[in-house]
């Protein structure tokens, strides 16, 4: 495949071994600009290992990572991620937490704050600039963590089960909010989850991973556009997808 690829983010045959053990094998995914793609799989299927390869924390044993067609395999500083743990630093205010990636890129503190604060309203965080993380609820903290991820990435975000620690009601709200924000900011997202409902509700496409070693077995496209997913989880179509996915996972 040429480096003239038009995909925003692409992995080509990523394989990761630790010693003798192969954790993931031949993972090839492609994500287009503004697309939201989920990696769905049980724990231990190597989803997080793949993330670490994409973000550059790990140098994969084989394969390449392409961002806008450029080879970024094994290099950090291009793609950031967000975990279930919000990883907001308790000793920094929300604006400084959110602006941290900009600071790391060499921006001054004032500039970073200014640029971060431009997005606070969009992310429903207005008024929290000067607060510390412990003063915010779990849902708000995840929003702040998402804004940080967004400010860092070249419009690509990796999200590793970001909402799985939230209670059902907060989760429902944040899903709705997330779909709204995604629409506005046109972020390209790779989303790890083991929650089938969440995957169907939020994704354009779903890659289903099975282990071990972790490999991609199926790719499912959700036909209903993301903008029309209000109450989608109560429709027959949703249930059909769910049945299909459960069938695959049970194989």
């Amino acid at each position: 495949m040429s480096t003239m690829s038009t995909h925003k983010l692409e992995t080509q045959n990523i394989t990761m071994k630790f010693g003798e053990e192969t954790i993931i094998r031949d993972i090839s995914i492609a994500v287009d600009r503004g697309e939201l793609v989920s990696l769905l799989g049980v724990s231990g299927s190597g989803k997080t290992t793949l993330f670490n390869c994409i973000s550059g924390i790990y140098q994969p044993s084989g394969g390449r990572v392409l961002l806008d067609g450029d080879d970024i395999t094994g290099t950090t500083g291009h793609i950031s991620y967000m975990l279930q743990k919000d990883l907001l630093l308790p000793y920094k205010t929300i604006e400084d937490n959110v602006g941290l990636p900009l600071l790391i890129r060499g921006m001054s503190k004032e500039e970073a704050r200014k640029q971060a604060s431009e997005h606070f309203e969009e992310f429903g965080l207005e008024g929290t600039q000067k607060k510390y993380p412990k003063q915010l609820s779990g849902g708000m903290r995840q929003r702040a963590a998402l804004l940080r991820t967004y400010l860092f990435s070249d419009n690509v975000a990796l999200l590793d089960e970001p909402f799985s620690a939230l209670d059902t009601i907060t989760k429902g709200k944040i899903h709705k909010w997330y779909l709204d924000v995604m629409e506005k900011i046109n972020l390209t997202t790779v989303f790890i989850t083991h929650d089938i409902n969440e995957a169907i509700l939020l994704s354009d496409r779903i890659y289903i991973m099975t282990g071990k070693p972790g490999e991609i077995r199926y790719e499912i496209r959700i036909d209903t556009p993301r903008s029309q997913r209000q109450g989608y989880d109560l429709t027959d179509e949703f249930m059909q997808y769910k049945r299909q996915i459960m069938g695959i996972l049970e194989e």
Partner: peptide, 19 residues
């Protein structure tokens, strides 16, 4: 995890120390 997050952002050793 926080250190890894900063590394993914391309932070230097000094920045990881500092932040």
């Amino acid at each position: 995890d926080a250190i890894n997050l900063l590394r993914s952002m391309g932070a230097s050793r000094w920045q990881i120390f500092r932040h």
